[in-house]
Amino acid sequence: MSELEQVEKENLSARVYGRLRRALIDGQFEPGERLRISALASDLGTSITPVREAIFRLVSEQALEMKAATAIHVPVLDSTRLKEIQLIRMHLEGAATERAAERITDKQLKRLEAIQADFIEAAATSPKKASLRNRDFHFALIEIADLPLVESIVEKLWTLMGPVLSVFHTTMPVRQIAGKDHRHYEVLSALRARDPAAARRAIQMDIQWGLEMADWLDRQASDPPARRKLASLKTD
């Protein structure tokens, strides 16, 4: 939690909410990790009250779980919930990428290419950074599409899956996420051709490939050491 930036003193609850939500999307917290309000307040440089308000808001959005007044945890996503998230993402991000192909400029395309290059480079040395660059790629597409309501919904989905996605990237062999056949290259090819239908298919295939996370979650759930690790996170 040392990576969390301190916030200014105005509109603290909203700012703290934004920082914690971004930390979840970025995978700064582990699935099952227990969050302590006092520690978060210290890291963010605020009092306890705005942190508590932000926590309640995230709990209402199911981005965090509260089983008791002081027992706050990052949810442990199961494969059924992940498949539902991926299904929604396929439709929404597919539509956004289709629109992006109709609107993209050369400058925006170069930015996406740079993000992908950073992703491939990070995959070999820093899985956490690779996870962040993967997120940047997807949200850059939605930004290009200029669909703020879609972006808001997709952000909520990434808040739920961010922690497990970050862990997943640390367990995947580099060759599987940094190969020349990575789905993002198909997205970029379709964008260069300004082919909306191909762009939609390519990003949907990328999200479909991400369903390997569901199989990974099932393996984790059936593996006693993995279950014990999650249990220890919950009781730390």
Results as ranks from 00 to 15, higher is better:
residue 59 V to S: 03
residue 161 M to A: 15
residue 201 R to Y: 02
residue 47 S to Q: 06
residue 118 D to M: 12
residue 84 E to A: 06
residue 134 N to W: 13
residue 173 P to C: 11
residue 147 L to T: 06
residue 95 A to K: 13
residue 120 I to L: 13
residue 153 I to G: 05
residue 131 S to Q: 10
residue 120 I to F: 08
residue 184 H to P: 01
residue 56 F to Q: 14
residue 231 A to W: 01
residue 80 T to F: 09
residue 141 L to W: 09
residue 49 T to H: 14
residue 161 M to F: 11
residue 50 P to W: 10
residue 4 L to Y: 03
residue 19 R to F: 03
residue 194 R to K: 06
residue 105 T to S: 07
residue 236 D to C: 09
residue 50 P to T: 07
residue 101 A to K: 01
residue 157 L to R: 00
residue 139 F to I: 11
residue 235 T to H: 03
residue 68 A to Y: 05
residue 177 I to E: 09
residue 77 L to R: 01
residue 141 L to G: 07
residue 49 T to V: 15
residue 114 A to L: 06
residue 142 I to A: 06
residue 111 R to H: 00
residue 91 H to D: 12
residue 147 L to P: 06
residue 87 L to M: 03
residue 26 D to E: 15
residue 140 A to K: 04
residue 9 K to I: 09
residue 64 L to W: 05
residue 96 A to T: 11
residue 8 E to K: 15
residue 44 L to E: 05
residue 2 S to C: 11
residue 36 R to Q: 12
residue 109 L to T: 09
residue 145 A to P: 01
residue 140 A to Y: 11
residue 209 W to G: 08
residue 37 I to L: 06
residue 146 D to V: 07
residue 214 A to E: 03
residue 87 L to N: 12
residue 115 I to R: 05
residue 70 T to W: 03
residue 98 E to T: 09
residue 93 E to H: 01
residue 50 P to G: 01
residue 58 L to Q: 09
residue 129 K to D: 15
residue 215 D to H: 04
residue 149 L to E: 10
residue 142 I to Q: 07
residue 42 S to Y: 14
residue 134 N to F: 14
residue 69 A to G: 15
residue 29 F to W: 05
residue 157 L to S: 01
residue 79 S to I: 07
residue 175 R to V: 15
residue 168 F to C: 08
residue 224 P to W: 10
residue 94 G to I: 10
residue 98 E to P: 04
residue 130 A to E: 04
residue 195 D to Q: 06
residue 19 R to D: 08
residue 107 K to Q: 12
residue 132 L to C: 11
residue 226 A to H: 07
residue 134 N to S: 13
residue 219 R to F: 08
residue 20 L to N: 03
residue 165 L to T: 15
residue 196 P to L: 06
residue 161 M to C: 15
residue 86 Q to W: 02
residue 190 A to V: 03
residue 123 A to L: 03
residue 45 G to R: 14
residue 18 G to V: 08
residue 121 E to G: 13
residue 119 F to C: 02
residue 222 S to W: 04
residue 223 D to W: 15
residue 97 T to I: 11
residue 2 S to N: 11
residue 174 V to A: 06
residue 36 R to I: 14
residue 158 W to K: 00
residue 75 P to Y: 02
residue 185 Y to V: 02
residue 199 A to F: 08
residue 125 T to E: 10
residue 98 E to V: 08
residue 79 S to K: 03
residue 27 G to Y: 07
residue 52 R to G: 07
residue 14 A to S: 13
